[in-house]
């Protein structure tokens, strides 16, 4: 009977299979379309200016012209006002990479650790105000309060947080008990049985030891996913530097300004600009490809109950 079912598929099942393949083709075309700009960027970054204008923009370069990359590595530098306004600072590419790493790692790790701490106590401890805090986190997530950026700017200028990377990092987790990260961490802690902690209490350990040695390691897959995605996002973040830290340059901000000003002031060519795009993109693409399985397996969002 079961064989018959398999051998003689109903018309509904056949239609399903055809539909699955048809939609699959559309999805594959869509996914490949995302490669077109990347392909365009890479092949043109290996062309000299003559090749770029004379040949088709989609043709493969006849020879790999590496001078665009040499130009970027040697010449991409910017002068900007120092954070105390007393003079100027020159940022070269290694310094931009340094600030990219500090911002991407420091900001992501600090925010995430504070979020882990919040999610842990809200998920595992019952204290006065816990339910209120959880509901507040959900409300803040869905309640759009618009237009407060001006006040935030005035306050940050008054407190000296504006244009100060260290203070920007230290004040970043002001909504640590809200948002998708908090929800994912909260759900991860909820899934860890409390019985694991009891052994530590029997051994005379305290709450901090339970958190550090038992609970935190148990949610490591979720933590690493959020860390990786946060790191990638912060590496690519140019807007925080443009809006809140104009005296600092990370690679993304440098490349953004480079392409914006280059054709007007610096006289650089399109292949050189595309080479700068490749330079800023390469580290995060490698990071993503290396950890793709971890990210795709553990990135989940549930409902907004609270």
């Amino acid at each position: 009977m079961a064989k018959n079912v398999k051998l003689h598929k109903s018309s509904g099942e056949k239609a399903s299979i055809i539909l699955k393949y048809a939609l699959g083709v559309i999805l594959l075309i869509y996914a490949l379309s995302l490669l077109v700009p990347i392909y365009w960027m890479i092949i043109n970054s290996f062309k000299d200016i003559v090749q770029y204008y004379q040949e088709s923009e989609f043709s493969f370069p006849k020879s790999l012209y590496l001078d665009n990359y040499k130009f970027i590595l040697n010449n991409m530098s910017f002068e900007t006002t120092s954070k105390d306004g007393s003079g100027t600072v020159i940022y070269t590419l290694p310094w931009m990479f340094y600030y990219s790493f500090i911002w991407a790692f420091g900001n992501t790790a600090f925010c995430l650790i504070i979020q882990v701490m919040c999610a842990y106590v809200v998920a595992k401890y019952k204290f006065p105000g816990r339910n209120f805090l959880y509901s507040l986190g959900i409300i803040l997530m869905i309640l759009p309060i618009i237009g407060s950026t001006g006040s935030a700017m005035l306050l940050r200028r008054q407190l000296g947080v504006y244009n100060n990377m260290l203070l920007m990092i230290l004040t970043a987790p002001c909504l640590a008990f809200s948002g998708i990260n908090f929800m994912m961490l909260h759900a991860a802690f909820k899934g860890v049985p409390w019985e694991y902690a009891e052994a530590v209490f029997i051994d005379g350990g305290g709450h901090l030891r339970v958190f550090i040695t038992i609970m935190f390691p148990m949610i490591m897959p979720t933590f690493w996913v959020l860390m990786l995605l946060g790191f990638i996002g912060a590496w690519n973040d140019y807007s925080s530097f443009m809006f809140w830290m104009p005296s600092y340059y990370n690679v993304a901000m440098g490349v953004y300004r480079f392409q914006y000003e280059s054709r007007l002031e610096l006289g650089t060519t399109m292949p050189q600009i595309l080479a700068s795009f490749a330079v800023v993109s390469l580290p995060v693409v490698i990071l993503y490809v290396a950890f793709q399985k971890l990210i795709t397996a553990n990135f989940m969002v549930g409902g907004l109950k609270g």
Partner: peptide, 19 residues
Amino acid sequence: IRILVMMPSIISSFVFCLV
């Protein structure tokens, strides 16, 4: 496909936008 569709999130938004 799962690798390719993440590209707009992985590569900096301004790089993707400008390209």
